[in-house]
């Protein structure tokens, strides 16, 4: 047991100093690209003319329906040969993660736009709002609150998805843990990796829940909650 702890305490700092940056960069880059891709494809599917909506749908199905690891290999190994674009390890990882999770995110965006009440859309027409004003000022703030739980989920999955980036030669947490296995044993190596992923995932989902509360607060949902509590209290009294 003491051996485990001493191994663990050597492995943990090593994983953090050697592997954390590749994992965090892949995650942050992937998350930003995921958001961009999700918004573009999701809005195109919901708002675009038929041809654009169909095109976006096809892209979504391709990236959702094929393996992340195969996509990663395509971008890293096939693209340089096909198009003479060599993104290198980190950018290949970011692009593959962003596209793959962005395709799932597009469904979150489309579903949330769909869930904004019809009356809200119709009122923007009755007030003659141009498309951009309508989306930016009225629809998006409401849809955003609805899509945050979905994005929270995806972001946590993305944290775990970064474990694949070792395949394109990035020395991330998982890669380093696999190295440490040889010197410090499987328990310590993978125990430390597990802990690091868990902590990152907790940070990420806490951040998203905070954003969610803030978005709901701005929609006045807190007022509703407060008044239902009051109503319940009155009903009980």
């Amino acid at each position: 047991m003491t051996e485990f702890f001493s191994d663990f305490s050597t492995v943990l700092p090593r994983l953090i100093s050697e592997g954390l940056s590749a994992t965090v960069y892949s995650f942050l880059g992937g998350a930003v690209l995921m958001l961009i891709v999700a918004v573009l494809l999701g809005v195109a599917m919901h708002q675009g003319p038929k041809w654009l909506a169909t095109l976006a749908r096809i892209v979504v199905e391709i990236f959702r329906g094929t393996s992340l690891i195969v996509q990663l290999f395509w971008i890293f190994y096939v693209f340089p040969q096909l198009f003479a674009v060599d993104l290198g390890s980190l950018w290949s990882a970011i692009v593959a993660l962003g596209l793959n999770y962005g395709a799932y995110g597009a469904e979150v965006v489309r579903g949330s736009l769909n869930a904004v009440p019809k009356g809200q859309w119709e009122t923007t027409t009755a007030l003659s709002m141009p498309w951009l004003t309508k989306m930016r000022r009225i629809i998006w703030p409401q849809a955003w609150a609805l899509m945050l739980p979905g994005f929270n989920n995806l972001a946590v999955m993305l944290v775990k998805g970064t474990a694949a980036v070792g395949l394109v030669l990035l020395n991330d947490i998982t890669f380093e843990a696999n190295q440490a296995r040889i010197t410090n044993g499987v328990w310590a190596a993978f125990g430390a990796a597990l802990l690091i992923y868990l902590v990152i995932a907790l940070i990420v989902s806490t951040l998203f829940r905070w954003m969610e509360r803030r978005a709901q607060h701005r929609l006045g949902l807190w007022v509703k909650a407060a008044s239902t509590t009051k109503a319940t209290a009155e009903a009980v009294a």
Binding site: T123, A126, L127, S128, P130, R137, P141
Partner: peptide, 30 residues
Amino acid sequence: RKRIGMVFQQFNLFPNMSVMENIIEAPIHV
């Protein structure tokens, strides 16, 4: 269409805005 306004059965106020903001939104942006 700008010559026409409509009031709906379900009010449809924008929940992301105060009362004042609801009213000034379109005059400013449209």
